[in-house]
């Protein structure tokens, strides 16, 4: 029996965990037990940096990663461009387009291969000052971001005061008023109980971030060709299911949060316009590549 160990930095009970469990059952069924899938959540087999490096060295088999993958393949940083994807359909259109193939080709020579892109969700802004409807509402607010130059520049461009902070500090920093708000998928607002220390959640959908299921080439090369084919196909075929599951779960979570925090819609077009300079900014263009941005805009029909 072949063992497949899949690592993820995301915790038990996250979207990633749900999808990996579904993948495990589908793959073990499809291979009639020829493969034993073992799932390691919360970085229990090494930091994400080490896991991704280990894929090429052959020490790790596979990883389901989110933003950290941009360190390996800069083209995946396309998802850092704000207000690019208006809904999950657009994400799937992108994945099936030449731009999607261009992104997958960015893994060539990195020691790993992209098997599939799964759902992870749109990010929303919460704060305890006022509902965010138009860009002007963000002016002067201290918004926590991850340690990402792109996200910092995005919020600063929109007039906010971006404050990079590790996620573990966010709850107490919000509680103490050291920062006014933060941005994360709605599911995090619920699971990390951020609604206890925040008054408003604005459905900004400013960034869509998928998860990337990547396999190490040494591991794939060691598999029997038929098995390898099944491993990749089952992963790709699971993608639409993850997007449907994500849509339903998002709707349910937002409905549940409605009792605990004031929720509002935003003027998406106004934000898109305010963020336009970022599409020319070297912070984004130099990392992602002008060709990748152009291909994505073409695929999504954005002028």
């Amino acid at each position: 029996q072949t063992v497949l160990q899949i690592n993820s930095s995301l915790p038990d009970g996250s979207f990633a965990h749900v999808f990996l469990l579904e993948y495990e059952s589908r793959l073990e069924a499809a291979t009639e037990g020829a493969i034993d899938v073992q799932i390691f959540m919360s970085n229990t087999l090494g930091s994400e940096e080490d896991v991704l490096q280990g894929l090429g060295l052959g020490t790790h088999h596979a990883s389901l990663s989110a933003s950290a993958i941009a360190q390996i393949n800069a083209r995946t940083a396309i998802f850092d461009l704000p207000y690019l994807f208006e809904d999950r359909a657009a994400v799937q259109t992108f994945a099936a387009s030449p731009a999607g193939e261009m992104m997958a080709a960015g893994f060539d020579g990195t020691g790993m291969m992209l098997a599939a892109m799964w759902d992870n969700g749109f990010r929303q802004i919460t704060n305890d000052v006022r509902p965010i409807v138009v860009p002007a509402d963000l002016v002067g607010l201290k918004i926590r971001t991850p340690t990402s130059r792109q996200r910092v520049e995005m919020f600063n461009t929109l007039g906010a005061n971006a404050t990079p902070l590790s996620f573990g500090e966010v709850y107490s920093a919000l509680d103490q008023g050291v920062i006014d708000g933060q941005e994360n998928p709605a599911e995090i607002v619920e699971s990390a109980r951020l609604y206890e220390v925040q008054d408003y959640m604005s459905l900004s959908n400013h960034v869509y971030l998928p998860t990337f299921l990547v396999f190490g080439e040494p591991y794939l090369n060691g598999l029997d060709p038929a098995l390898r084919e099944t491993v990749m196909t089952v992963a790709a075929e699971l993608a639409p299911w993850t997007f449907d599951w994500g849509t339903e779960t998002d709707a349910r979570v937002i409905a549940e949060l409605g009792d605990r925090i004031a929720i509002n819609e935003v003027d998406f077009a106004a934000f898109q316009a305010a963020a336009a300079p970022l599409y020319e900014s070297p912070t984004f263009v130099d990392v992602i590549g002008a060709d990748m941005i152009a291909a994505t805009r073409a695929a999504l029909g954005i002028e």
């Binding site: 930091s47 940096e49 080490d50 490096q53 280990g54 060295l57 020490t59």
Partner: peptide, 19 residues
């Protein structure tokens, strides 16, 4: 035999690399 020894070069650094 199921474990690749290159792991010895990777994981100890990850353990020490800790804020």
């Amino acid at each position: 035999p199921a474990v690749v020894p290159q792991i010895i070069g990777l994981i100890p650094f990850g353990g020490a690399n800790n804020y």
